[in-house]
Design a protein around this nucleic acid. Structure first.
Length: 550
RNA sequence: GUCCCUGUAGCUCAGUUGGAUAGAGCAACUGCCUUCUAAGCAGUGGGUCGGCCGUUCGAAUCGGCCCAGGGACACCA
């Protein structure tokens, strides 16, 4: 909560106690203010009068007028008005707004950051794409959201670890190895058999082609004899993980931990977690398989953890993996999954509860589908068939900034239409440039006025409507950051930056920053510096560059 | 069939967790560059918040029942 708000709430609480001495203590506890959508209703609004109506058995309007009699209107408050049903609306004085700007300037680049997270350990696992092919648009969205979220949480004082879970074993990986082998054999004019669930993408061909060059006949295995399935499998995983890592780095996404499922399997942790579940009586045998009683925790049906052939299902290692997350002491565990994993939420949460962990610490976000539009038509995709648009292609086509921005533009759980032409357009249609342009414009003005020093002494000269709007918007930045963190939604920040940029463009067109009036210019330069700082801070949290020139 | 998500302006979407006359961008139309970046600004038009009922001071928001679209319902990963 921001300082003005805290001061206001204290003032209201005192006024309520003075106006209605007999009021119960908890009536004013947890009192919060609202920022009205419409400026006409003031800078902050309170519904306390309506809330107290029942307890006091009085009309909200009467309660409101009783309260405002006891509110000190000197200093921070310009005026207080009562509106129809019983709202009390507060209009903050210019003086108080300007002192808020002073505080913002003094905080500098740290403005907006907080210690809300209290250095608690947080882990965010995202992308975690199977190494069976290149990253696609869908992964791009998860990468952009996850990385931005990590930055925001860090800004809020969390100790954040970004983790990628590598699914480097299992049926799909075997199919990948076999696909590569088949392609390699074909290129060597040897008999080959393409697996039923094989991967047909162009990247398979390219890997096979590269192998034909590196595996020389002199080494005695050039024709493919003696090359095991495992060899091809490991080779393919290594290669693909290499390109995935590179793509992510190019996208500005850096992971702290790469967690291999294979290593998890080798560690014996899967057997251990099964033992624990068994001891707790959450496992039973049926049809030669071992089942987990996930229905005890609200899942639709029980789940198989050991198949009748003795192998594990997909969830089994994942249960062990999640146990480890809790064991490592993370207070906030965030997973970002694709929509196809929707059904797994309840079973993973069930497993965590069965193991005795607090499921509230685990947030599983589903990053909904991305529909790519090219020339107004949706682009169809299928990984198996090799028909897909890769993240790399998107970055090459529209650039890193625009792609990150577009991926974050909508709520995580809502479908996203990604229009390639729009993202690429360097015109006013494109919202990325709108924000970057505001930042570049400010840089340009600052450069133009390099002989003018920002001067805090003259801030009282700021009295224009647009100036107050700008400062009030800046004041809300910390609240926005908190909201984005609390809701795990970076788009809240993005929308705010659009607003802020809008207020700046408006101001810029209404008034000149640099004039012959030196004190006024000094004050305005202070203001635009503050705007620039917040724009750059916010863009940075989204992983988008704040450009000095455009 | 069961469960989950979605339904708000011509299009793409917000709506501060129940607040006031429901907003933004795009598209359409009208203006603004001899002065700090026109990738910008100012303005106009555009709505049965899918429908009905309920909860209360107050509902796009909460509950129930319908309608429409999408997704998930493996001893696949």
């Amino acid at each position: 909560m921001i300082k003005i708000e805290i001061d206001l709430i204290i003032a209201i609480k005192e006024a309520v106690k003075k106006a209605f001495p007999g009021i119960s203590a908890n009536a004013v506890e947890g009192l919060s203010l609202e920022v009205p959508k419409d400026k006409r209703f003031g800078d902050f609004s309170s519904n306390i009068a309506m809330r107290l109506s029942r307890e006091l058995r009085k009309a909200p309007l009467d309660i409101a007028s009783g309260i405002i009699k006891h509110i000190d209107k000197s200093g921070m408050i310009q005026s207080v008005k009562i509106e129809k049903p019983g709202f009390i609306n507060f209009y903050i004085s210019n003086k108080r707004v300007i002192s808020a700007l002073e505080d913002i300037v003094k905080e500098g680049v740290g403005f907006g950051s907080s210690t809300l997270g209290k250095s608690k350990k947080a882990q965010i696992e995202f992308v975690s794409a199977n190494p069976t092919g290149p990253l696609t648009v869908a992964h791009g969205r998860q990468a952009a959201i996850g990385d931005s979220l990590a930055r925001i949480l860090k800004f809020c004082g969390y100790n954040v670890i970004k983790e990628y879970y590598i699914n480097d074993e299992g049926v799909q990986i075997q199919a990948l190895g076999k696909s590569l082998k088949a392609m390699f054999m074909e290129l060597m004019n040897k008999e080959s058999e393409f697996p039923e669930n094989g991967y047909k993408g162009r990247y398979i061909y390219e890997m096979a082609k590269a192998l034909t060059l590196t595996l020389s006949p002199e080494k005695g295995r050039g024709k493919g004899e003696g090359l095991s399935d495992d060899f091809f499998m490991e080779y393919a995983v290594k290669e693909i993980m290499g390109t995935i890592t590179k793509d992510l780095e190019n996208f500005g996404v850096h992971f702290d931990v790469w967690y291999s499922q294979k290593s998890l399997a080798k560690s014996g942790k899967i057997e251990k977690v099964l033992e624990i579940l068994k001891d707790k009586k959450f496992l039973y045998q049926k049809d030669d398989a071992t089942w987990f009683r996930s229905t005890d925790f609200g899942d639709d049906k029980d789940r198989v953890v050991i198949k009748n052939d003795g192998s594990y299902t997909y969830v089994t290692p994942d249960i062990a993996y999640h146990k480890e997350k809790f064991e490592k002491g993370y207070e906030k565990i965030i997973n970002i999954w694709g929509p196809d994993h929707h059904g797994y939420i309840s079973r993973i949460k069930a497993a965590c509860q069965a193991l005795g962990y607090d499921k509230e610490k685990l947030s599983i976000l589903i990053a909904q589908l991305v529909t790519l539009y090219r020339d107004g038509k949706p682009v169809k995709m299928s990984t198996r068939e090799g028909e897909f648009v890769t993240l790399r292609e998107i970055i090459n086509e529209v650039g890193r900034d625009a792609s990150r921005f577009f991926f974050i533009m909508r709520r995580t759980e809502s479908h996203l239409d990604f229009d390639l032409a729009l993202a690429k357009a360097e015109t006013m249609d494109n919202p990325v440039y709108y924000i970057q342009y505001a930042h570049a414009r400010i840089s340009s003005i600052i450069e133009f006025s390099e002989n003018v020093k920002p001067n805090l002494d003259n801030l009282a000269l700021l009295d224009k409507q647009q100036e107050m709007d700008l400062i009030k918007t800046l004041v809300h930045y910390p609240k926005i950051i908190e909201a984005a963190a609390a809701n795990l939604e970076p788009y809240i920040l993005l929308a705010y930056l659009q607003d802020l940029a809008g207020f700046f463009h408006s101001y810029y067109n209404a008034y000149r920053i640099v004039t012959n009036d030196k004190p006024l210019t000094e004050a305005r330069i202070v203001l635009i510096h503050a705007v620039k700082n917040v724009l750059s801070s916010g863009l940075n949290l989204l992983g988008v560059n704040a450009l000095e020139k455009m």
